[in-house]
Design a binder for these strands. Structure first.
Lengths: 144, 144
DNA sequence: ATGGGTGCAAAGGATTTGCAACATT
DNA sequence: AATGTTGCAAATCCTTTGCACCCAT
């Protein structure tokens, strides 16, 4: 249950590693399931009894602002987060809403600062949308 | 002020071209500014006096479901829409929230149905995040 | 007349805000 | 003591829903 990685990442980014922040980032790193705010809150409310949703909101926003986590906004009205900050492609299932990592797809590479028409690019995101394999199977069954 | 393109696109997709739907899709096609629901509503409420936000919501959702428009979800809690259904890269300014089209960047091509690990890919989206040229200039001024 | 389309008002949820309490240096 | 953090409750804002009306076929 070491939280070394979370701890280091916070310190590197100049963020004071409070109990809450450590717990949240550690959870994110250890659970690459693209949790949303509520998921994180539910998972931690027992371990960090005083934890509030507000803190989860604030912390996750801050983490994504300093690139200590990735904010994923594919799902229309439910932001979720990814503790994996290596660039990788995401697949979003329109049916069940699940987000799957596609590590084998070529992701836009992190270049040194790239400028296009004067616009300074800091992050790149590529995602696919469609039907995930689990949902596709279920649908096939019903059709038969 | 012809709405031929909007009309044709609706009919092609099997959607009845009501006054409201025509107005909304036409607006989207003629204003490639990535408007959100409110933008579209404000722009049309005078021209289509009875128009309701509900109809804008319903119509834009429907249009994106049948691929007569693109739903863009970069901005955390404000979905916006694009009448341009050719694949192209979007740039999102973290500072002012503006979304800019990058037609010269290579966009993920629309392939025939692509399947990855059993997941059926139907759409692909690539976007960049950073600071747009206008904001970058303003910031530079302040710094000097 | 009938089925789809629209619009109002109300409900529902997610996120933000203001502020007081708290922890840490 | 001073500064940065946290958490509660309330406020806000976006979106959806239920239902009645309306229009076109």
């Amino acid at each position: 249950m070491k939280k070394a990685e979370a701890y280091n990442r916070l310190v590197e980014k100049g963020i004071r590693p409070s109990v809450q922040r450590l717990a949240i980032l550690d959870y994110l790193i250890k659970h690459p399931t693209h949790p949303n705010i509520e998921d994180v809150y539910k998972a931690l409310e027992n371990k960090v009894p005083t934890l509030s949703r507000t803190t989860v909101y604030n912390t996750l926003r801050m983490l994504s602002e300093v690139n200590a986590a990735q904010m994923i906004t594919i799902n229309e009205h439910r932001v979720c987060y990814d503790g994996n900050i290596e660039p990788h492609v995401h697949f979003y299932c329109k049916n069940c809403g699940k987000i799957i990592d596609l590590f084998d797809e070529q992701a836009p590479r992190v270049t040194e600062t790239k400028v296009i028409d004067g616009n300074i690019v800091q992050e790149e995101q590529l995602y696919y949308k469609g039907i995930c394999s689990a949902c596709a199977q279920k649908m096939e069954k019903k059709t038969n």
